[in-house]
Amino acid sequence: MTCASIASDLVDLARGLSPDAERARAIERHVRDCADCAARLDRERALSADMRRLADDTLAPPLDPTQEAAVLAAFDTAQMRSFGRSPKGSRSFLKRASAAVCVSGAVAAAIAWMLVRTSTTVARDDGGPLPSGSAPPSIGLIVEPPAVGSNVPSALAPHRRGNLAAPTTPIESTRFVLWPGADDLPTFESGHLVRMQLPATVVASMGLTPTSHVDVVEADVLVDQGGFARAVRLVP
């Protein structure tokens, strides 16, 4: 047994790890006869003792309630965002979120297309500008903000065709629900309401159920500063 062959064993011995019994006896015999290895073993043991002192003397600061609250808030936020997440993890959630955004975008585009088509029909039928205060909404949900309570598309309702031509029936107002794929509007951000008529099937997919069987319902859509829909409610 040479000094080089037991160098690693000396470190392990100093750290409290023991080789098998036979090798331990051989190392012990070598160290007894070798001053270099005996000194090295002493140095390694001193270093191990100092490392334990360093570890013991280095304490983490006391638990900071603010930091804990911040971490827990991050947890809560993640849970809110992943309400539809499958056990596969966040990647799957992102796919679902993307799909929800695409679906909601497609719905919004379809609604906008129908509204634009209807407004075109109105202009052609009437041969003049739309009545004051009843300007048709622009494409999508980036709508000029009417005052809350105004009834933008109502003037167009008699001219609607197909499913959208069905008369609206008064219904109970509801609470706001999140627009598919959207987050709640942050408290520090302002938004505006756009009242419009939506197909009942669309609002039903968002969890809103009209009290009566109608094809089209009135709804307030909460639009954020970026022009994206955040929430929707049914209105009487």
Binding site: A55, P61, E68, D76, S82, P87
Partner: peptide, 21 residues
Amino acid sequence: GTGDREAFAALYRRRRADVYR
């Protein structure tokens, strides 16, 4: 992994110091 907030808080309190050190 299943969304248990209490478990998260417990692990944070238990292992925060180790990670910090």
